[in-house]
Nucleic acid binder design. Structure first.
Lengths: 106, 106
DNA sequence: GTTATCTATAACCAGCAAGTTACATAAAGG
DNA sequence: CCTTTATGTAACTTGCTGGTTATAGATAAC
């Protein structure tokens, strides 16, 4: 994954509103109105966040009537995880398998 | 991990210079001069990046004579990976084990 | 074609981020 | 002490981020 792409992905994840949007989209696709209702900010603000997420490749969007549904595209999250994984040997539990960590999060 | 902490960690990772600093520190601790030599920017700029990394918990620093050694603290990277892992079921290879991905990166 | 609904865009503002140069501070050595 | 080396801090500039309001554009319904 290129530095440019990592800039976009980590930059997108650096905002808690955008992380919350991703969490919402993980459950189900949503339109702009749905997402706006979740936060205390204006619809244009949400549209901007969606644009950032789209440019990072984290969501795709398609029209459904007058609405535009946002859909989670988690592939870049995998790539970001891959980047982070290079450091797993420096974690405290150096030799614990990562999926054990993952289990512990459930 | 708190939203505040995730803001700091992902924010720190959103800059390629800081990612490169982490990559360097993964090999060996380094002082500010060492790190400055790796980039085309001034020493104060590097000191600022180190401050950001320190506030995110990604490095620790201790004096060694007139120098200050930066040391990688990868625990927050584990936490960030944990956050990302919640989305692993949405990745294309939905049911591939994450450690298989990790192997493929070596 | 008018209207209503949903979303995008434009213009603006405040604050922060990332860099600079100049200078201050800390520790070690003669 | 005075100097040298290494690093931090202050002040400043530039540009981006995240929000706002107002308005424009696209689609569906009538």
């Amino acid at each position: 994954m290129s530095d440019d792409q990592l800039d976009l992905v980590f930059g997108a994840l650096a905002d808690r509103t955008r992380r919350a949007i991703l969490a919402r989209l993980a459950r189900e696709d949503a339109n702009v109105g749905d997402l706006t209702a979740l936060f205390t900010m204006s619809q244009p603000a949400i549209s901007k966040h969606l644009k950032v997420l789209e440019q990072a490749g984290l969501i795709s969007r398609n029209r459904q009537g007058t609405m535009r549904l946002s859909h989670l595209e988690a592939e870049p999250l995998k790539d970001a995880t891959g980047w982070l994984a290079d450091y797993r040997e420096y974690w405290t539990e150096s030799y614990a398998r990562l999926d054990e960590l993952l289990e512990s999060l459930d």
